[in-house]
Simulated scan of single mutants.
Amino acid sequence: MRIPGRPAVLLASVAALAVLVPLGGCTVQPADAGGGRGLPVRVQVPGSRTPAPAGHAPAPAPAPARTAPGAAQPPRVLWARGDSGAGVRELQARLRQVDWLADGPTGSYDDLTEQAVRGFQGRRGLPPTGATDTVTWQRLVAMTRPPGTWELYRMGGQPAAAPDPRCLTGRVLCVSKTSRTLRWMIDGRTLSVLAVRFGSQYSPTREGVFRIYWKSRHHVSTLYDSPMPYAMFFSGGQAVHYSYDFAARGYAGGSHGCVNVRDETAIARIFAQARVGDKVVVSW
C-alpha cells in the first residue's frame, strides 16, 4: 500500500531495517497480546540491564556454560611424592642432568624431588604442582638424554647380579663387583641385598674366597684415622664396613680396598648376625 506524501524509498528502507535488526544479535520484544497498540517497540541487547516494560516479566538469565564432553582434561600424573620405583629413579637422573636436583637418584619421590619438579615446571610456564604429569615428563625428556647405569645407580640400589656359585652353601657375604652389591646369604637363600663400593685403581679390593677373622663394632683405621663402623675383616686390613663418605657422596669416592656400605641400618643388622668364620666371596 502506498502512503500519500511518502516516497517509496522510505518504505523500502524501513523494510530493510526490519530485516537487519535480528541479524545484529538483538531481540525485539513482542507487542502486548492484550491490545497494547501504540506502545513503543523496545530493542534489548542480551546481557543489558534495561528494565522490561510494565506488565512484562524480565527475561531469564542465560544458563552458565557447561564443559563439553570432549573438552581437554588435565594431564595424567605419572609420579608424585611418596611414589618409588625405576620410573622415579629415571626422573631423578634426568633432573640431575638439567641441574634441578643435586642428590640421588634414590628411586624414592621425596621432598627434594618434589621441589625440583616444582622449580622445573615454574621455569617453563607449567603449573608448579610438584607432581610429574605427562606434560612435565615430555618436556623433561625432550631436554635430556637416557641416563646410563652409573647415573641411575650412583647412590646404589642397582639390581644384584646372580650369586657366584661359591655363595650357594653356608653363611656368606657374597660381593659382586659387576653389580656393586653385597648379598647376605645362608644356604643359598638371600636375606638382604646392599649397595657397596670398592677400592680405587691403586688400592683395589681383593677378589677370592675369604673368611671373617675379626669383627669390630666401633673400629677406627690406624692407617687413615677414619671411622670404620661395623667392620668385618676378611683379608689383611680389608673389611666390609659402613662408610659415612659413601653415604654422603655415593660412587663419587672410593675406599682404600675395603667393601664400603652406605646403609647403616642394614649393615648393623648383618653385623649382628654374621659370625667369625663366615665366608666372604668377592667376585666380578
Rank of each mutant, 00 (worst) to 15 (best):
I3N: 10
I3D: 10
V9M: 04
A12S: 09
V14C: 03
A16I: 06
L17D: 06
G25V: 08
G25P: 04
G34E: 15
G36D: 12
R37E: 15
R37S: 13
R37M: 13
L39S: 15
L39W: 12
P40V: 14
Q44N: 13
S48Q: 15
R49D: 15
H56T: 13
A59T: 11
P60V: 04
P64D: 10
R66A: 12
A68Y: 07
Q73M: 10
Q73V: 13
P75M: 13
R76M: 05
V77W: 01
V77P: 02
L78N: 09
W79N: 07
A80W: 08
G82L: 15
D83F: 02
R89D: 11
Q92T: 15
L95H: 00
R96P: 00
R96F: 04
D99Q: 15
D103L: 09
G104D: 01
P105M: 01
T106N: 03
S108Y: 12
Q115D: 13
Q115H: 05
A116Y: 00
G122L: 14
G122R: 15
R123F: 07
R124C: 09
G125P: 04
G125C: 05
T129S: 11
D133K: 02
V135M: 02
V135S: 03
R139E: 04
M143S: 05
M143Y: 01
M143D: 07
T144K: 01
R145A: 06
P146F: 00
P147H: 02
G148Y: 06
L152V: 05
G156M: 02
G157D: 07
Q158N: 05
A160T: 08
A160H: 03
A161P: 01
A162G: 14
P163D: 14
P163Y: 06
D164E: 11
C167P: 10
L168C: 09
G170L: 02
G170T: 03
R171H: 13
C174D: 13
C174N: 12
V175T: 10
T178G: 05
T178S: 12
S179M: 10
T181I: 14
T181H: 14
M185W: 01
D187K: 11
D187N: 15
D187T: 07
G188A: 08
T190N: 12
L191N: 05
A195C: 06
R197W: 05
Q201Y: 05
Y202D: 08
E207V: 11
E207Y: 07
G208V: 05
G208A: 08
F210G: 10
F210K: 07
I212R: 00
S216Y: 11
R217Q: 10
H218D: 14
H219W: 13
V220P: 05
T222H: 13
Y224A: 08
P229L: 06
P229K: 01
M232W: 00
G236A: 09
G236T: 08
Y242E: 11
S243Q: 11
Y244M: 10
F246Y: 13
R249S: 12
R249T: 11
Y251H: 13
A252N: 15
G254V: 01
G254N: 09
G254Y: 00
S255N: 04
H256V: 02
G257K: 01
V261S: 03
D263V: 06
E264G: 11
E264S: 11
A266F: 04
R269F: 03
F271Q: 03
Q273W: 06
R275H: 15
V276C: 02
D278L: 09
V281T: 04
